[in-house]
Design a protein around this nucleic acid. Sequence first.
DNA 1: AACTTAATGATATTGAATATCATTATTCGA
DNA 2: TCGAATAATGATATTCAATATCATTAAGTT
Lengths: 144, 144
Amino acid sequence: MQAAREQFFNYLARKKLKFTSQRALIFDVFWTAENHVSPEELYGQVKEKDPSIGQATVYRTLKLLSDSTIAREVDFGDGVTRYEPHFGTSHHDHLICTRCGKSVEVIDEKIEKLQENLAAEHGFTLSGHSMYLYGECRHCKGKE
Amino acid sequence: MQAAREQFFNYLARKKLKFTSQRALIFDVFWTAENHVSPEELYGQVKEKDPSIGQATVYRTLKLLSDSTIAREVDFGDGVTRYEPHFGTSHHDHLICTRCGKSVEVIDEKIEKLQENLAAEHGFTLSGHSMYLYGECRHCKGKE
DNA sequence: AACTTAATGATATTGAATATCATTATTCGA
DNA sequence: TCGAATAATGATATTCAATATCATTAAGTT
């Protein structure tokens, strides 16, 4: 069993929750799906493999994956919450093209450090942050 | 007439939209309201002054204020869009206490600069960004 | 195998935000 | 100033994501 799947299993056991066939399937589809999947998108993909699955279960399972730090919620501001695999990956932020919607994962240690300092200056102990950079990507820039 | 109100008036005129009594009232209440007001909160305050006003009008007017750059949308991730006065104020980001919900406006030129660089490295021309820092404020930190 | 407890799926519900539409108000030209 | 053209309003219905409810089913335990 791959590490992330095992971590999910362990998380459920620790919380005395059950490792059901639905959760296993949703996990697998989520893990192989493209990045930044919305619950509805994932529901569509899961239904192809098992049409009997309920959409509420997909929502519930994504929340579990998020709680277990295997997935991370991302909010691009378009009204739907998306999820991305997070296990074993380092923290990163997003650079989003306002034209074509393409998103790139970025990270800048210096920014992270400055955020810590900025919070400390105001007496805050930072537990997390979200940063989204919006602009035009190389390909869209030329076009009219 | 104060500058912001005048700018709103001019914006409407330029777009051939009408300066109605409802819009004037909503503007005034918004302008004197505390920061980060949600449409529903504002609707409540506006209704005290004019109970006949419709909530759709409040939503519509906030969108106009946003379009005219007099207000700015902020999203603290709790499901409601809030608005803050933006006219004449410089750009800033938010530091939010995850315990008491208090938010502080912050700005760091060095971070802004690094964001530009980071985007440029990926071929992006930055048009905007949103950054939210989450943590515990001085007062909440001690408490259990 | 029986039992305890959580999970599921269908459905209803919530809550924010938007759409529709008949009526009213504003703007602007004559 | 008056009226025609057009936008705005408010009431209501609708959308859409997300959550709640609940009877039934399935896991995990002893």
